[in-house]
């Protein structure tokens, strides 16, 4: 039986190194490039017709656009417009990372959103970016974020440390949520797939049970992939809103 965490191992395809730092092109990088290429090609070709009444592909591209645009407008308001390309790119990177990871591509298949360093990097960009936006917009007034409006001043002794702690936990919770969901899902899929192979090789009919379970899990994982991409981006929007409007 295959080790269920072997799927998370990086496989260098082209060994590269700059100044002693390893920047090899790996299966992870391949999936990142694939996600970028697929989303660009999909969103470019589908609206090429510029149809007044959109066809199947064009309405899908428009759906993506309006989905993210509405999410940003609902959570941040009109001031969020300038961050739309970033939020959209973030959504595409996470969504296609999740979805490509589910595809059973032999050897090269990889889920880069199940890598803590990737999710943490994305979350850190959001966290640092949001903090900078907050200070640029409000100066030191941004620190009011750590003191809930209307609370008695004496409570500040307790509330301010809690608020600061929760603020700094944001990138961690954001990245660990995505990482853990994807990792756990893929381990379960791997184990269940192992059952199908070992049991099915011995007894065909009993092998069908883990296969049925695996199919159901696969559907669930597609749902998780979509949902976690949405959650990641919607939380980023909420953090952005805090920085812009100071709740």
């Amino acid at each position: 039986m295959i080790n269920p965490i072997e799927q998370f191992e990086l496989r260098p395809l082209v060994a590269l190194s700059v100044g002693g730092t390893d920047i090899s092109f790996t299966n992870s990088a391949l999936m990142m490039v694939a996600a970028a290429v697929i989303s660009t090609v999909f969103l470019t070709l589908s609206v090429r017709a510029r149809a007044l009444v959109p066809g199947r592909w064009q309405s899908m591209a428009e759906l993506f656009y309006e989905f993210v645009a509405n999410m940003l407008r609902d959570n941040v308001g009109s001031e969020g417009r300038q961050y739309f390309p970033f939020i959209f790119t973030l959504f595409m990177v996470v969504l296609f990372g999740n979805l490509l990871g589910i595809l059973p591509i032999p050897v090269l298949g990889f889920t880069y959103t199940a890598q803590i360093i990737v999710t943490f990097a994305l979350a850190a960009v959001v966290f640092v970016g949001v903090t900078i936006i907050g200070f640029v917009r409000h100066g030191l007034h941004f620190l009011r974020l750590f003191f809930p409006k209307g609370a008695p001043p004496a409570m500040g002794i307790v509330l301010v440390p809690i608020e600061i702690l929760s603020y700094f936990m944001r990138p961690i919770s954001l990245s660990v949520r995505l990482f853990a969901n994807m990792t756990a899902g893929h381990i379960i899929l791997q184990i269940m797939g192992g059952f199908v192979v070992t049991l099915g090789a011995l007894y065909f009919v009993p092998g069908l049970f883990p296969f049925a379970f695996l199919s159901a899990l696969l559907v669930l994982e597609v749902g998780v992939a979509l949902l976690q991409a949405y959650v990641f981006v919607v939380l980023s929007c909420i953090y952005l809103n805090d920085a812009i409007h100071l709740h």
Binding site: T21, I23, S24, A29, A35, A36, T40, V93
Partner: peptide
């Protein structure tokens, strides 16, 4: 390191394209 590098590269390229 390799993942950070390629993530940054693909993210920035995708951002510019988008």
């Amino acid at each position: 390191a390799p993942q950070l590098f390629w993530l940054a590269l693909t993210f920035i390229v995708l951002y510019v394209l988008m």
